[in-house]
């Protein structure tokens, strides 16, 4: 029992260290960018005005002092306010975080549900060269098309031929449920496309790797049914690489669906982050990065737990 507690304490401690490291890094990085908040707010203003602005927002204080102030505010749950709109950042998050999470989870589930069976099929058939070749080429083709290309194609097709989907406008769930679904399909499909390629390729490679293992040959030699071999041996043994892909993809979407959010005008965190960055709205950038980092840390923790459940060799103790 104490071993488990120690393990949990260790994981929480290292997660906190990761978050502090990330926040320090982003703090230094955004202040090192050329151009400052004063430049954005009063690009041609007199020096006194710029000085006044900097004083008002405490931007003249040494960086370590600013960081410690920010950190102690965050520790009490205060994410700060936007320099430009003066709105509490927590209020913006309340609407934006669910949007991003909804898109990321939808896209991850869709791509896993489509990509894993296709990869499984192509991996199991990999000795029949035609099927295997098609799947491999398709997988790498989808993966190598950037999401903004797919988004542009979708935009073109669906704005020209409408087809009942909402293009370039986000309808919140609570305003119109049907409209919400119509507006969420295109961005989710765009994000899924890359994921489908990723899942096809990972699953296929994992299946081919497992099929070459001696225990598969031994199972065949014992006269097990092909169906039982796939269900009993292959699926379990390809699960770990799939968990890795799943967690990396989900984390990538939570932090990085920026372009797709822009193309489809989705009010998620990606757009919020970029706007904050362009405006040198430091508190917005810091808070967004912190939230994304938290999500990534949580996803990785969940993946670690899953690894141990799947493969007994990875369990501690």
């Amino acid at each position: 029992m104490s071993q488990i507690l120690k393990f949990i304490a260790f994981r929480v401690g290292s997660a906190l260290l990761t978050l502090i490291g990330v926040s320090m890094f982003i703090f230094v990085a955004i202040h090192m960018l050329p151009g400052s908040f004063e430049d954005v707010l009063a690009p041609r203003g007199p020096e006194e005005l710029r000085q006044q602005i900097a004083d008002k927002f405490g931007l003249n204080q040494p960086l370590p002092v600013q960081y410690v102030k920010w950190l102690s505010a965050v520790a009490t749950g205060d994410l700060g306010i936007s320099l430009i709109t003066q709105d509490p950042i927590a209020d913006s998050f309340a609407t934006r975080v669910p949007v991003t999470i909804e898109l990321a989870v939808l896209a991850t589930i869709t791509s896993a549900l489509i990509g894993i069976p296709l990869g499984l099929w192509s991996g199991l058939a990999h000795r029949r060269t035609a099927v295997s070749g098609i799947a491999r080429v398709a997988g790498s083709f989808i993966m190598s098309v950037p999401d903004f290309v797919i988004a542009s194609v979708f935009l073109y097709v669906f704005s020209r031929y409408s087809l009942g989907l909402t293009v370039g406008q986000w309808v919140p769930w609570h305003e119109d449920a049907i409209g919400h679904i119509k507006s969420v399909i295109l961005p989710a499909a765009t994000l899924s496309a890359v994921g489908i390629g990723l899942f096809i390729t990972t699953t296929r490679n994992a299946v081919i790797g497992v099929l070459s293992k001696d225990y598969i040959m031994a199972a065949q030699a014992r006269g097990e049914e092909p169906r039982d071999i796939v269900r009993g041996h292959v699926l379990r043994n390809i699960s770990n690489p799939l968990v890795t892909t799943l967690s990396i993809y989900l984390a990538y979407l939570i932090g990085g669906a920026i372009i797709v959010e822009y193309v489809y005008s989705v009010p998620g965190m990606g757009r919020f982050l970029v706007q904050g960055l362009l405006n040198r709205d430091y508190p917005i950038v810091q808070a967004t990065v912190l939230v994304i980092a938290c999500a990534v840390v949580l996803i990785n923790m969940a993946a670690d737990v899953a690894y141990g459940l799947i493969d007994p060799r990875l369990r501690k103790g």
Binding site: K213, D214, G232, H233, R236, N237, D311, R313
Partner: peptide
């Protein structure tokens, strides 16, 4: 028939 292969660690499924 039945087989016994060279390396038992590879012949047994590691997850079962």
């Amino acid at each position: 028939i039945a087989y016994v292969f060279q390396d038992p660690m590879n012949t047994l499924d590691p997850t079962k």
